[in-house]
Design a protein around this nucleic acid. Structure first.
Lengths: 179, 179, 179, 179
DNA sequence: CATGAATGAGGTTTCATTCAT
DNA sequence: AATGAATGAAACCTCATTCAT
């Protein structure tokens, strides 16, 4: 059991049961080790939370934006991001939003800022005025966030693949300016 | 100190510090009474959480939908609801979304269902097809939820009144079908 | 079991086993209650240590100095204090000297300052110059402190009553100026 | 990192932060090695404490008594010892007095016995009766010990060099019999 | 020689809850 | 109605120690 194992276990617990579930004793039990072992890899629970959040950030924020940012067509960029919202709703993020810990809040804030900036740039690339691009980015990101929450509590809201596809199309029609 | 006092204190704590803050010991300390007093009015913490959530539901879900439902013009209905999202972001709801407690999740789910139904009806009133109305309602409510989260962590995203008004207009333009 | 009981138990443990022995779990076990009970009376271990130290201070510093201060004859005052050093060596003080906790150190320092001032006044009353009074007070208090340590580790250094009396006389002869 | 390094680190930690500071984890961290390394040189914490105390004993007890014992004039012997009390207050000893560990207590006791015997011999050399020599040795050593404690908590008690010299003279006048 | 991983004991603290008064 | 005392569970954290490598 190394640092990464703990980080992943923390993220899994977070996704399933919320921020309070990042608790050393239960995690240790789940991992089949004693709690003392944890302190070999981390100085404190805070350090674990921090590391887990950073791991999430690297994969789901920086990673995704880098990948999508490499796409030339702004419309395709938005299509990818909106499709992701429906196909792989960011349930971890939905839970992170719930955390009262300053460190987590900071990461969530940073993620929002970076994503809003990306969206704003993308909408500007599509010819929107700076103000309109900013507003539209805010709307799109709010929809993304809210959808994550909604789908977490009501996974049956978009239960069938048909509904899913239909809604994805609707999202694109509403949030991607026509050519 | 009566039942209502405890419920209100619970909601206040929730709004300020998240679901974990609904804890009897700290609340009693804040209210200047002993914990024993709490057990006069409630059988358990769960009962308090339940009561507080019901109070929120009555005011912010049923109450608002009743009031807005009394408005004849569907467009005005939507305008009111979207304006509310920007002017009084539902911070309590943002925190409720964070709670791991089944009771709270159920209330949040119920609220979502009722609101989605209301929005779907309203969009149908505007002439959208059943499917389109449902999709559009989902988008609008997701935006509403996400905005609450966003504004909680980044109150400066819409700091100036001008930005606020502009964004409210943008929301209406994007989410209310043209006449 | 009330606050005072805990304070006394803390002082007893301190006297017998040193500052580390002021530990909630073992004390609770000794008192026949659970550790949770402790937190009904105190907010933290620090608060207990603080309260216990204050209790010691009131009895052994303020109390003794008040009583001895009421004696008119300066020589008798010194006789009493030196006698006490031999008869009831301040074992609690010897342990307090060992504590690394800032709060305890502060109390020990305060006690030293108050006692040194008292001794200095007393020696001045006997006609010593200010400088000499101060030096002599320092010597006398150092002897008092050191004796406490010495007798704690070697209770047999003054085992027999005869040795005790003899040494008490010696102390008086050496540390109280001749008439 | 060899045995001696650990012993010295233990003594340094002891002098600075008291007996509880002789802890393998923090020492290892401070020395930049892992705890496993410690168990190469020592079987247990107890062995380290023992070794460190023996090192202190060899230098500060045996060593000093040997050096001072080589001086012919008993008065000069006392002058040296008392001067040391003021110039280099034995802060390690002050901390050792605080330790609850039997091994440490034993060493402290042994040191006291050896030093008291030395002082008693010295006072006898000056012509005091056996009983008087013993009492005077006890007084002198108590003052030495107490001064160490006092100066540790109140380093400003003898802050200026003038005060220091004056008090050293006072000590000699009071504790070394006149010729 | 030393490291890295893990254990287990022991401590502090917070909290929901019970109960006699 | 409310208080004060206490319980027990669960969490965090620090250490001494062991062991395979």
């Amino acid at each position: 059991m190394d640092r990464e194992g703990w980080e992943q276990a923390a993220l899994d617990a977070l996704e399933e049961a919320g921020p309070d579930a990042i608790a050393i004793v239960p995690l240790a039990k789940a991992l089949g080790v004693t709690r003392g072992s944890f302190y070999h890899h981390f100085d404190s629970r805070e350090e674990l939370v921090d590391a887990a959040v950073e791991r999430w950030y690297a994969v789901h924020v920086t990673g995704v934006l880098d990948a999508v940012g490499a796409i030339a067509d702004p419309r395709e960029r938005l299509r990818q991001l909106l499709g992701r919202a429906v196909d792989k709703p960011p349930t971890i993020l939905a839970q992170l939003l719930a955390s009262p810990e300053p460190l987590v809040r900071a990461a969530v804030r940073r993620a929002a800022a970076e994503r809003l900036a990306f969206l704003t740039r993308t909408y500007a690339d599509l010819g929107l005025s700076p103000a309109a691009a900013r507003d539209q980015a805010l709307l799109a990101y709010a929809a993304y966030l809210g959808l994550a929450q909604l789908l977490q509590d009501q996974p049956d809201a978009l239960a069938t693949p048909r509904r899913k596809t239909a809604f994805a199309k609707h999202l694109q029609a509403q949030l991607i300016p026509a050519e």
